[in-house]
Design a protein around this nucleic acid. Structure first.
Length: 493
RNA sequence: GGCGGCAUAGCCAAGUGGCUAAGGCGACGGUCUGCAAAACCGUUAUUCUCCGGUUCGAAUCCGGAUGCCGCCUCCA
């Protein structure tokens, strides 16, 4: 089976064929650096992070470019309001972005260029478009003429007539056609500017992506991605600029991720329900957020709520409970000699083979347009299999069991690597989880531990009434105890 | 007004022509346990919003209805 991906350009799934054997060029539109990132950015980042990881897992030599827009109206306005320049603003939010992404476990793209580093390239590209008659200059502004680019509308699936019928375009008498868009804008008083053949000015919004993708990935590259809202006008305009200038396809596959809703409402500043990544990370482990997102298909909308995130947390707890049990089991394995797969007896071999098949099933799911939800379903199956296997062989750690569990651990981590999950040490995960939940709910950890100590004494005295009373008291706070032969551990449900 | 998407169990969510409609959360019953927890086993959609059609066969394709959502203006 080969990787198939849903191409917005074609409107259907297509078999993925890289332009150059073994290599993939991926360009994703990054943020405009004028504010902190929210969960919508997080989703896009997680989705394309997983795609990038998966392409590498398949063995492709990937070049992943994700840009920053660091000159734009909103940045200029914010700089004015704070009596500073745009670079201070964009630097601040790029730094915040990088911290958020690192906290979410997003692997760094290969290149993260900034628009203002490529002004020369933009001017060159605009001159090329002017020379080809696809653009025109009016009073220091340069516009792209959509009528002169025959494929305009091919990505978003609309015709010029359709769009004009909508007629919700701002009136600008400089434009020959209301849908023409700015490649270069003459700078107004007090705005940042760069020298250009058309006077002092600054780039339009779309040109940077055409230039930077060309520079780092070439005139034609493999995959271009972004949020679904970018299909029109941003990506449509990128295609017009790039393909207008080169006469070659810009990207073969266009991928768009679905939106995030909050409590079933569109997230927007006007509704006041924008949830930032840093707020989200205070309440949930990064992997919980990732699991939540990856349990839906990347093109569907997802609905963020405390309920949905809590469910994801429970699911994540299930994974780590198994990983913890495996880890504890494997500690007792040190005394056992290494064996090989062909030495396994039938029962053990059966489990081994099912785990061996897990990556195959996972790849089959991921090959179908990055179906992470199905892939995760397979991992849950694997976890149940491992749990059953451990329950059965719990008391008898033998060389065979150790071999199979070591192998299982490797397989689970291998798939986790693709999804950016299961990267924590299980003990660290649960410790962090308890601390976070205790803080969220105002539970005093010292008090819990004190009560557990009292209960231990009651249990030694076989005072079950007192022991159960303490258990009950803690349960009311959401603290659940687990007695093991050696100790009592707790967690918050 | 134009373009597009979605509708699957109590909830979330895979599945896009044919063998038993994944998986998670929840609930219930059982095993285990001093009691619990975790884990395991079992049960939880004869049916995929509704109405027509195509087909030997449809959740899956086509037409229509209803409902929800997105884009067309900055937006991941």
């Amino acid at each position: 089976m080969a990787l198939r991906i849903f191409n917005t350009l074609a409107g259907r799934k297509e078999v993925f064929k890289p332009t150059r054997e073994g290599k993939v060029g991926l360009y994703v539109c990054g943020i405009t650096a004028y504010d902190v990132c929210h969960v919508g950015h997080a989703r896009s980042a997680v989705v394309f992070d997983v795609m990038a990881r998966y392409l590498r897992y398949l063995g492709y030599d990937l070049t992943f470019v994700k840009n920053f827009t660091d000159v734009e109206d909103k940045i200029i306005n914010k700089a004015k309001a704070e009596h500073t320049d745009i670079f201070e603003i964009s630097d601040r939010y790029i730094k915040a972005h990088d911290e958020d992404m690192a906290a979410l476990g997003i692997a760094k793209p290969t290149v993260t260029p900034r628009a203002t580093e490529h002004i020369d390239g933009m001017i060159e590209l605009i001159e090329k478009l002017l020379a080809k008659g696809l653009a025109y200059v009016v009073d220091g502004d340069v516009f792209f003429s959509v009528e002169r680019f025959k494929d305009y509308g091919k990505l978003s699936g609309r015709s010029l007539e359709d769009m004009l019928a909508g007629a919700r375009v701002d009136v600008n008498e400089k434009k020959q056609n209301p849908l023409d868009f700015a490649l270069w804008k003459a700078s107004k008083e007090g705005e940042p500017w760069w020298e250009s053949p058309w006077g002092h000015g600054r780039p339009g919004w779309h040109i940077e992506c055409s230039v930077m993708s060309q520079k780092f990935l070439g005139e034609t590259f493999d995959i271009h991605g972004g949020g679904e809202d970018l299909i029109f006008p941003h990506h449509e305009n990128e295609i017009a600029q790039s393909e207008g200038a080169t006469g070659k396809p810009m990207a073969h596959y266009w991928l768009h991720n679905g939106f995030v809703k909050i409590n079933n409402e569109k997230m927007s500043k006007s509704l006041g329900n924008v949830c930032t990544i840093s707020e989200m990370l205070k309440n949930y482990h990064a992997e919980v957020i990732r699991l939540f997102m990856l349990q839906s298909h990347y093109r569907s909308p997802v609905d963020f709520s405390d309920k949905s995130l809590s469910e994801a947390r429970t699911g994540m707890g299930r994974f780590y409970t198994t990983l913890k049990a495996m880890k504890d089991f494997l500690v007792s394995c040190e005394a056992h000699a290494e064996i090989t797969a062909d030495m396994l007896s039938e029962k053990h071999r059966n489990v081994f083979e099912q785990l061996e098949a897990l990556p195959v099933k996972f790849v089959e799911a991921m090959d179908d347009d990055f179906n992470t939800a199905r892939g995760i379903g397979h991992i849950f199956d694997g976890v149940r299999l491992i749990n059953a296997y451990m329950a059965e062989s719990r008391c008898f750690p033998k060389a065979e069991t150790c071999f199979v569990l070591r192998f299982s651990w490797k397989k689970i981590r291998e798939l986790g690597m693709v999804l950016g999950l299961f990267m924590e040490d299980p003990d660290v995960y649960f410790k962090q989880d308890n601390d976070r939940e205790a803080r969220k709910r105002g539970i005093n950890i010292a008090e819990i531990e004190h009560l557990i100590k009292q209960r231990r004494e009651a249990r030694w005295a076989k005072d079950w009434g007192r022991a159960d009373e303490i258990r009950q008291r803690l349960a009311e706070k959401g603290v659940v105890l687990k007695d093991t032969p050696t100790e009592t551990t707790w967690k918050i449900v």
